[in-house]
Computed example of a mutant assay.
Amino acid sequence: MTALTIVSLLPELLNTNGDAANARVLAQRARWAGLSATVVDVHTAADMPAVVDAVVIGSGTDADLPAARDALLPMVDRLRELTTAGVPILAVGTGWEVLSWGIELGDGTVVEGLGLVAGRAVPAPTRATDDLVVTTKFGRLVGFENHARAYTGAEASPLGRVVHGTGNGQGQEGLTMGDLFCTHLHGPVLARNPQFADHLLTIALARHGAVYTSGAHSAAVDDIAKAARNQIAVRLSLATE
């Protein structure tokens, strides 16, 4: 039986919107597929397991940004290795921003980022607090956004195109760099959009030479998630799935 190790980075600091639960979503869907899956909470570099099959980084408050950056700094070389090796990584909100060149706060101060992805987070004219609907190659992704910054200078491809909401600004949302996926989507995003979770699991299993096939129990859960997405679509006068 294939065993997956899913890392949740700094869940005590980066879980403001429940985004650390994305790791549990991956693990549960893997178990429903008949696999063994373990979530490892990583608080320091010493906690990082030798074998990592997926990484989840959640979102935190601006007050926690310096602490999160300082905690992640000793792990930056390991994270770079995982990115190069094609390990799927999901970073949400400030967890994404801290991977960038830096974060410009509203008071003019700057939190230097880890430099793993191009671009930086900059103050937006107004805070984005709304449903966020994005078209991607994984289908429509739905969640909510709650951020005061836009994102500029990304040299990677966007995650998708904004149908409703703000995203990065200029009609784009998130970024992808190889198998690193960054987004403003909360919800948690993988619970609301299980097809995205399955894409990450497909990548993780392929590295083991295995093929991911979702389990039977996933179908019922997927129907619930689809109904929730369609409720939002109807409210926003968008086509349903």
Rank of each mutant, 00 (worst) to 15 (best):
R31E: 05
A50W: 00
A63H: 10
S100W: 00
L35H: 05
N168R: 00
A27D: 10
T94C: 09
G34P: 11
M177V: 12
H217I: 07
T213N: 15
A191Y: 13
N146K: 07
V111G: 03
G102N: 00
E145L: 02
I103Y: 08
R78K: 10
Y212N: 03
G93H: 04
I57C: 09
P88T: 10
G102Q: 00
L14Q: 07
R192E: 13
P11F: 08
V134G: 03
A156V: 00
G139Q: 09
L180P: 09
A37D: 04
A71L: 04
G115W: 02
V92M: 04
S8V: 04
R120A: 02
E97V: 06
A148I: 04
G102A: 04
A228R: 13
G113N: 06
Q231C: 10
D70V: 00
P188E: 09
G187L: 05
A3S: 15
N146R: 08
R192D: 14
S237V: 11
L114M: 08
R69M: 12
T44F: 10
A45D: 14
A148S: 15
L238P: 02
G115S: 07
A3I: 04
K137T: 09
T94H: 12
S59C: 10
R140I: 08
W32S: 13
T213W: 07
T5V: 11
W101A: 13
D41K: 06
T202N: 14
P188F: 12
A219F: 14
A206R: 14
A91Y: 06
S36F: 11
A220S: 13
H186A: 03
L99V: 00
V39H: 05
V134A: 04
G160A: 04
T136W: 00
K226L: 15
D64W: 08
V87K: 07
D47V: 01
G119V: 00
Q195F: 10
L190C: 09
W32R: 14
M75L: 14
D41N: 12
A30F: 05
A27E: 07
G165P: 06
A91R: 02
A204D: 06
A63K: 14
A46E: 15
G165S: 09
L175T: 07
D41Q: 07
K137S: 13
V163F: 02
D131F: 11
T84Q: 15
A219R: 14
S8T: 03
A191D: 13
T240H: 03
